[in-house]
Simulated scan of single mutants.
Amino acid sequence: MKILYIGCVESSYLLLEKLIEAGADIVGVITKKESNYNSDFRDLVPLCEKKEIPYELVENINEEKVYKFIENIQPEIAFCFGWSQLIKDDIIQKIPQGIIGFHPAALPKNRGRHPIIWALVLGLQETASTFFMIDASADTGDIVSQKIVKISYEDDAATLYQKIMTIACEQVVELWEQLQNGTANKIKQDVIEGNSWRKRSKKDGEIDWRMSGRSIYNLVRGLTKPYVGAHFVHQGKEIKVWKVCEIDTDKYENIEPGKILDIYENGDIDIKTGDNVIRLIEYESVELKCGEYL
């Protein structure tokens, strides 16, 4: 089975590497040399050159040279893992068995943008690794493989990503084998049942100390590295926060949100929230005073 592979981020690299190791016939790769908006961009070119796989560098997946590349390599199926642009139907129709995409969420739930971030920020207890047939819309095609991924309280963006990719790398080989022997099943999505997450804004990452401690904890762990980080504003400056913990206490019930309660020798800072206390553990350097309000 001749495969066209499309991708340009860390997950793209990991899944491509796994397919190559399994012996998949990758006849061509479409990727980017660089990206200004993918925080987890990964250059696939060195891997392609090492394995002598033809590749095409593009900025837009719907460029004319993509059509020509497909005509030259004549793939039977395509895998598109980690590409944020929608693929036009004209390109989809050029691939005899269609294009399979990857979405780290439990489709038909949670289509759309930033699925790992939103799952953590919303405090979900599980997500999924889902492979599906790409159509002209976003994340709405038939599901061909889905495995549930549990989210623990301790998980953050990095650990949840690793959990998902560990499962996805084994899952993609199983799917490739099923596609080859004709045993892959397609499950039609219920578009009415599903929802779609929006693109997050900068404001979504700002800590408001009137929020509950759990909401602040979830926001920080969802936006921590490799993402942009949650932040609060102090004297007109944004201060990035990478790690916090919840302190459940009723000691400060009569204290207003945003007050700095304690500053410890190791740099940890306790701040009153809407319902309890959040301890800052990893954050950008900032001069704060005990008793000050944020």
Rank of each mutant, 00 (worst) to 15 (best):
V27W: 10
A168D: 05
Q162M: 12
C290E: 15
I92G: 09
L179H: 02
K186H: 01
G213D: 00
A22I: 03
L294D: 10
E49R: 09
N181V: 07
T166P: 07
D40G: 02
V191T: 11
S11T: 15
I116N: 01
I134A: 01
D208E: 13
C290Q: 15
D262F: 12
K259I: 11
L280I: 09
Y264P: 02
Y252P: 01
I207T: 11
K18N: 15
Y264F: 14
E246G: 08
T273Q: 05
S215F: 02
K150V: 11
G98S: 05
M165P: 02
D40F: 09
E154C: 02
Y217N: 02
G291V: 14
N36D: 10
T127V: 09
S215V: 06
P46H: 11
C290F: 11
D268Q: 14
L122I: 06
I3A: 15
T140I: 00
A230D: 09
K243N: 13
K259F: 01
S215I: 02
I281M: 14
Y293K: 15
I167L: 09
E287T: 14
A184F: 07
N60Y: 15
E292A: 10
D90R: 14
E253G: 10
R42A: 11
Y55I: 10
G258D: 12
P115W: 03
G82Q: 03
I167R: 00
Y153K: 13
I167K: 01
I20E: 11
W83Y: 04
P96S: 08
E52K: 14
V191W: 12
A119R: 08
Q97I: 02
Y161F: 13
K65R: 12
W83K: 00
L4A: 05
E63H: 05
V191E: 12
Q85V: 08
K18W: 12
V66L: 08
V220L: 03
V191S: 12
V45R: 10
E174H: 09
L107C: 03
K68V: 10
Q125K: 12
F232C: 10
I216E: 08
Q97H: 06
V286N: 05
L223Q: 07
Y67K: 13
I216D: 03
T127C: 11
S215P: 04
G258P: 13
T159D: 06
S84K: 09
D40K: 12
H234S: 06
H234E: 01
E287R: 15
C290W: 14
L179P: 01
K188W: 04
G7N: 00
M133N: 13
